[in-house]
Design a binder for these strands. Structure first.
Length: 622
DNA sequence: GGTTGTTGTCATGCT
DNA sequence: TTAGCATGACAACAA
């Protein structure tokens, strides 16, 4: 009724809400004949429905008696043996490929970073421990590095900063660079003060020209030549430790530009109290505790390629999102041989069971002719045609999702009774039928009575096959489904078919088409998932590589900071005032000027400048 | 008995 | 308008 309703309503289209009614007939999901309340169906239609229902009941009632199994031929033939081999190759070779990819040299290092080398006076300040502090506080050199947030944003920012810094390492240190890095605006009162201001305390009381600088070790050559040859310039209000050129830094650090690290240190606790919290360390955050922890963790994990925790998280996310398991490669179900249900391909019995169909199919192409009235299950034969056209239109790579029973069973094609082995979806078969269908030996079929064979074939038939038979559709479902539209219409025109017959034929065709479409859709979906999985693997490899590089950078950065700290201490410790007394680190600090010279300035000024330097980036962000 | 994978089917939107 | 395709959703079934 519903089917008739639908067809009568839409004439090919599907009426909304017809599904439950459809199920009554199409699905046989309700064990009662359809009532016809308010039906617009004609009496003839109702009779046809009754016929269909009686047919079903006669056939054993439940839809479970029908065997869908040999519809699997469609999927079986859908794959060719090479695909199967390809799958294995792809799958097994994926690891090797991944390895190879993992070894690829990264071409991303050319990434450009903003030249925002943090000319922050606090860096050296933080790098040099206060003399008033116990030696154990040398670790405090990194103390600013060990504090901070571990928010992803900060880490990311730090990472970028680090990258920019490390890029700077590769640059030759020259005056122009120093000017860029350390120059202050012309009108900057601080810079003016540092270099010229006559009213600063240091101008009057402190003069590096007068300061005696002890012999420097070779390691300290970065200052020694110039310092030792410093001309006595009484007019100079400041005493710059002016290197002849700033490349002298390189003698100590190679090509590393650490000039920016030489800024007024905070050498005592008081200075730290006043300016400590506000003094930014451009590198400090890069080595904060969280990051160092991460490094240590990564050191362990990196050997594996990437952080296993992160990998597991990724896996979880990925697995949880898709309703399909990604780990299908290990699915043992591939060929489902154990599930194999087969059907007899004997064509003789089909003629007995459906004379009309056999007679008509004889004139059809070979793909149809042998099918009898076995409905969709003939798709495997149909695919003889379709394969030439690309099967059902979509041929994704049959990756490792073998268990989808899309794997190629064509190797079984030489065994007719195994032809339909695939996934066992004998939904409509009674358990007893399943037993017999499990391995339907042709010999046994031959021995059996015709009646038995007919029963068996009946059980192999799909619902639509049964309906087609009941409605005396004069051609096979294969034709109905697979013929091109023109031929299909031509075929229909050859026969005098009732409205109900035409409706059923259209439904059969629609369902058959949709079934293939659904299969293709599922294949595509799996293929997409596989591609995504590969993408995830690639990204994980990239991430692991970047983390490795990060660890290396941070290590070298830490070493450089330690070096800077020791150098600063050595320089400062050798400075003497006019009376030959060492300067108090609580009152003075070393700072690099914009021109690359090193100045000894009062700590208060250093703190002020540090604060100013700190505000600048913040203002820029706003 | 609950879970998972597979398949068929329907509804719907799009071409 | 019709046919066909693509796809999400659902149900049935088997393992």
């Amino acid at each position: 009724m519903t089917r008739l309703d639908r067809s009568s309503h839409s004439g090919g289209g599907r009426a909304k809400g017809s599904r439950p009614l459809n199920s009554l007939l199409a699905g046989h999901r309700v064990a009662q004949p359809p009532s016809a309340p308010g039906s617009r169906a004609s009496v003839q239609d109702i009779d046809l429905i009754d016929i269909l229902w009686r047919q079903d009941i006669d056939l054993g009632a439940g839809r479970e008696i029908f065997d869908y199994s040999h519809r699997q031929k469609e999927q079986d033939v859908d794959k060719d043996p090479q695909d199967g081999a390809e799958q294995e190759d792809t799958w097994s070779g994926e690891g090797a490929e991944a390895l190879a990819r993992n070894l690829l040299v990264d071409g991303e290092t050319g990434e450009s970073f903003p030249a925002q080398f943090p000319a922050d006076i606090s860096s050296i300040t933080e790098a040099v421990p206060s003399e008033s502090e116990p030696p154990g506080l040398q670790n405090n050199l990194l103390s600013p590095l060990l504090t901070g947030t571990d928010s992803p944003f900060d880490l990311e920012q730090q990472w970028q900063d680090l990258m920019s810094i490390m890029e700077m390492q590769a640059m030759e240190v020259n005056t122009s660079a120093n000017e860029i890095l350390y120059s202050t605006p012309p009108g900057d009162p601080l810079s003016t003060n540092y270099s010229l201001a006559p009213n600063t305390p240091i101008n009057q009381n402190v003069s590096l020209h007068q300061a005696s600088l002890g012999g420097c070790s070779q390691d300290f050559s970065l200052f020694s030549p110039e310092v030792e040859s410093l001309p006595v310039a009484s007019s100079s209000t400041l005493l710059p430790l002016v290197p002849s050129n700033s490349t002298s830094l390189n003698s100590t650090f190679g090509s590393t530009n650490l000039a920016g690290l030489f800024f007024p240190p905070q050498l005592n606790g008081t200075a730290n109290d006043t300016a400590g919290p506000e003094l930014p360390d451009p590198l400090g955050g890069l080595l904060d505790e969280a990051m160092l922890d991460e490094i240590s963790l990564m050191d362990l994990a990196i050997e594996e390629g990437f952080n296993p925790v992160q990998a597991s998280q990724l896996e979880e996310e990925f697995d949880s999102d898709s309703g399909l398991s990604l780990d299908s490669s290990h699915s043992p179900s591939s060929l489902s041989s154990s599930e194999g249900s087969s059907s007899s391909s004997s064509s003789s019995s089909s003629s007995s069971s459906s004379s009309s169909s056999s007679s008509s199919s004889s004139s059809a192409s070979s793909s149809f002719s042998e099918e009898g009235a076995v409905g969709y299950s003939s798709d495997s034969e149909t695919l003889d045609l379709e394969e030439a056209e690309g099967a059902v239109g979509y041929q994704p790579e049959y990756s490792k999702f073998c268990r989808m029973s899309y794997q190629d069973p064509s190797q079984l094609s030489c065994l007719p009774y195994l032809e339909h082995v695939g996934h066992n979806h004998t939904y409509n078969m009674a358990p007893s039928a399943l037993d017999s269908a499990d391995l339907p030996p042709p010999s046994a079929l031959k021995k059996g009575s015709k009646e038995k064979q007919a029963d068996f074939l009946d059980k192999q038939m799909s619902r639509d096959e049964h309906r087609a038979r009941a409605m005396k559709i004069p051609f096979t479902n294969d034709k109905i489904i697979n013929l091109p539209v023109e031929e299909f219409n031509e075929l229909l025109s050859k026969y005098q078919l009732s409205e109900a017959q035409l409706s059923l034929i259209r439904d059969i065709r629609r369902r058959g088409k949709n079934k293939m479409a659904a299969q293709n859709c599922r294949k595509r979906k799996l293929d997409t998932i596989l591609n995504l999985e590969r993408d995830v693997e690639d990204l994980q490899r990239d991430k692991a590589r970047l983390l490795r590089e990060k660890v290396e950078f941070l290590r070298s950065l830490r070493q450089m900071k330690q070096k800077v700290q020791s150098l600063y201490q050595e320089v400062f410790g050798r400075l003497r005032d006019e009376n030959g007394r060492p300067y108090s680190p609580s009152q003075y600090a070393l700072q690099y000027a914009g021109d690359g010279s090193v100045l000894l300035i009062p700590r208060t000024l250093a703190d002020q400048q540090a604060r100013r330097q700190e505000r600048k980036p913040k203002d820029r962000r706003k």
